[in-house]
């Protein structure tokens, strides 16, 4: 840790909104209107948030959604975080049920509207971005940063030794 630890376990919300936790942002008794496929929705949103650039790999290319599908099943992934991911995706699809059929530019405009007009919009998008960037720069053993595409784009040298197993387990994959 830095000699002074100031960063708490989770920092994902605009510092201006010190709501603290995803849990606090969940409205009581949120109603579900249409049935959505969480990871399909996330895949579309992440590709808008992180499109292919001149050198940058796109979210699909570096495996942003595959990463989330993987890490969200581990016990260290907070249940409240997963609920908030689902909640925002549901709200987005409730408001814009044709979102998946729009072209990239329309999707981008829709997301900007969602951020400006929906109460969870900005927090949810920044939250999805948080995990998108985790996928971009985490060790490939977690399912993102495919072929080290994130690291290569950013000329990043991985710290050594790199993990051989995820979640600081031993080499047999057991919790130490």
């Amino acid at each position: 840790m830095p000699s002074r630890k100031t960063i708490t376990r989770r920092v994902f919300i605009a510092s201006a909104v010190l709501a603290g936790t995803a849990l606090a942002l969940l409205p009581q008794g949120a109603k579900t209107a249409i049935k959505i496929d969480l990871f399909k929705t996330l895949e579309a949103v992440q590709e808008v948030l992180f499109p292919r650039g001149l050198a940058a790999p796109s979210a699909i290319e570096f495996g942003a959604t595959a990463y989330l599908a993987n890490v969200s099943t581990h016990s260290s992934f907070l249940a409240s975080d997963l609920r908030f991911l689902k909640h925002g995706a549901q709200e987005l699809m409730n408001e814009y049920n044709n979102f998946l059929t729009l072209n990239p530019q329309e999707q981008d405009e829709t997301l900007r509207e969602f951020v400006n007009e929906h109460e969870v919009g900005e927090n949810w998008v920044s939250f999805v971005l948080y995990f998108t960037i985790e996928a971009l720069l985490s060790d490939p053993i977690y399912g993102g940063n495919k072929n080290e595409s994130g690291w290569r784009w950013l000329n990043h040298k991985a710290g050594l030794p790199q993990p051989k197993v995820p979640y600081a387990q031993n080499l047999k994959g057991e919790v130490i």
């Binding site: 050594l160 993990p163 979640y167 600081a168 031993n170």
Partner: peptide, 10 residues
Amino acid sequence: EDFSKDEIAY
């Protein structure tokens, strides 16, 4: 030998 520079884990 168990430690690594795994930002996710640590």
